[in-house]
Design a protein around this nucleic acid. Structure first.
Lengths: 239, 239
DNA sequence: CCAAAAGTGTTACAAGTACACCCATGT
DNA sequence: ACATGGGTGTACTTGTAACACTTTTGG
C-alpha cells in the first residue's frame, strides 16, 4: 500500500538494561527502526508481525499498535529517498516511495536471548542499543521510540509485561529490575513482591537460582493461563 | 494521500445521553462516520480538525487519534465504491478510491448545543444518534464507535473530560450524569463530588441553577488553567 | 566471619467505599 | 405538607508506603 509504512520499536531486556533493536542502513547517517510496508491483502497487524519475523526470526510475539506519525514534514529526510540518491537504484519520478509518508508505530516485547538479529538487503547492521544510550537516529525515529517507551510505561500499570521480556524462569529481583528499568525508578522490594503476588500470575518453582553469590533466590515462571486472563481483563489495581 | 482516510467519532452530550454524530449517505443503506482524506501537505491531526470543522462548524475542539483500522477486508463494502456504483460518478479503473483502505480513528468531544450539523455533498442527513440506540452502520463503523467509546472510558480515568462536553456553567449532578453515561454505571453522589473537588479543576460560582424543582444546585465552571494543567499531567489517581 | 543480597511481616497513613441526615423548592 | 433532589460528614475497609529483622551464601 502506498504512502504508509510500519515501524517497529522492538524492546528487549539484557544486563538489567532496556534495549531497542536498530538497523544501520547503508549510505545513511543515522540508525533506523526496522520497518516495512503493507501488502495489499494483509491486515496491518499481520504486516507488523511479518516485519518483526523477518528481522528477529521470532513468531508469536507481543506486538501492539500505539500511534500513527503523520507530520507532513516527517518525510523531508525520507530514508528511501536518501538511499535512492546515493545508489544506482532509481525510482520513477514522483513515485510514492519518495513522497510524504505516514508510519504506523508498533511496539514489540521480545526475549533478548531468543533473537537472531538479521540485517536485510539494505542494512549494514542490526543491533541492540541501550535505551539510555541511543545513537543518532534517522527521520523522526527518535521520537517514535520515546512515544513507544511512554506507551510501554503506561501499559505496565494495567497489564502484566514480564512474560515477553524475560526467559521462562526468572527470579523476583530480576522481574523487579525489569520494572525499575522500564519505569526508570526504584521500587521497594517487599511492596513489589506483594503486589506481584496479588496478581496471581506467578508460579514459584521448586528450585532456586544456584551458583550466584549470596542467598539463592527462588525461581518463578508465569502461570500462562492466568497471565493471559490478566492481559485481557487488565490488572484491576494501578500503581 | 491515497488509501488512507480519517474517520471521526464525534461525541456530544444531550438529555443525559451520550450522542454520536452520523451521516446518512445517499444511495447507501447504513449510516456512516464523518470522514475524509488527508491533503498532501497536512499533518494528520490537521486533517482531522478540518474534517471536524467542515461537519460541525466548530474549531478548537478536543480531538484525539485512538486507533488505525487496518483489516484488509474492511473495504469490501467500501462506501465510495458503493456510491460510485449507484451514481453517474465514475472513477478510473483501479483507482485508489475503490481499493483497500486504512482509516485512522479520531474521537472528538464537543458541546452538543454549539454544533450546527452540516451534511456534505454526498449526504442526505447529518444527525446525532444515541450511543445506546445506534442505527445500522456502514462498513466497520460500528466497531470504530465501540473502540472510541472504550478509549473514552479509559481516558476518563486519567484526564478531565467535562469541559468539552458540557456548557460553560453546569451543576455537579449534571457532571455526574455525564460520567455515569460514559461509564455506563451508577456512581455515589457524595464520593463523586469529593473526587471531583480533589482534582481542583472546578470553580463554584456565586449563583445557583434557578427555576428547577427541588433545591437549587450550585453552578460550577472549570478553572481552565488548572484544567489544562491536569490534562497535560494527567490525574494522579485513577478510579 | 562478614558483606551483600534474599525472604518475610508489621505498622502508619491515604484513598476508596458505604452510608444517613438535614435542607430547599415546586407542586 | 411532602416528595424529590441537593448539600454535607463520618465510620469502615482497603490499598499503599515506609520500614527492620532474619537467613543464606560466596569470598
Amino acid at each position: 500500500m502506498p504512502c504508509v509504512s510500519i515501524d517497529c520499536v522492538i524492546f528487549g531486556f539484557h544486563d538489567n538494561q532496556l534495549k531497542v533493536l536498530l538497523l544501520k542502513i547503508e549510505h545513511l547517517e543515522g540508525w533506523a527502526l526496522p520497518g516495512g510496508f503493507i501488502y495489499k491483502d494483509e491486515h496491518i497487524d499481520d504486516s507488523a508481525r511479518r516485519i518483526l519475523h523477518e528481522r528477529t526470526g521470532l513468531q508469536d510475539i507481543f506486538l501492539q499498535q500505539f500511534y500513527v506519525f503523520g507530520d507532513a514534514k516527517r518525510s523531508d529526510e525520507n530514508i528511501t529517498k536518501l538511499v535512492f540518491e546515493k545508489t544506482e537504484f532509481k525510482a520513477p519520478e514522483n513515485n510514492w516511495l519518495l513522497q510524504r509518508f505516514l508510519t504506523i508505530g508498533y511496539y514489540a516485547l521480545v526475549n533478548f536471548n531468543a533473537v537472531h538479529a538479521a540485517p536485510d538487503y539494505f542494512s549494514e547492521a542490526c543491533e541492540w542499543h541501550d535505551i539510555n544510550n541511543l545513537p543518532s537516529l534517522a527521520m523522526d525515529h527518535g521520537g517514535i521510540i520515546q512515544e513507544a517507551l511512554r506507551t510501554l510505561r503506561t501499559h505496565l500499570h494495567y497489564e502484566p509485561v514480564g512474560y515477553n521480556l524475560l526467559p521462562e524462569k526468572f527470579t523476583m529481583p530480576e522481574l523487579q529490575h525489569l520494572y525499575e528499568t522500564i519505569l526508570d525508578e526504584k521500587l521497594d522490594r517487599r511492596n513489589f513482591q506483594r503486589k506481584m503476588f496479588s496478581y496471581h500470575i506467578l508460579k514459584r518453582l521448586k528450585d532456586r537460582r544456584k551458583g550466584v553469590a549470596h542467598k539463592a533466590p527462588f525461581l518463578y515462571s508465569f502461570d500462562l493461563r492466568k497471565y493471559h486472563k490478566a492481559l485481557q481483563e487488565g490488572l484491576q489495581t494501578a500503581w
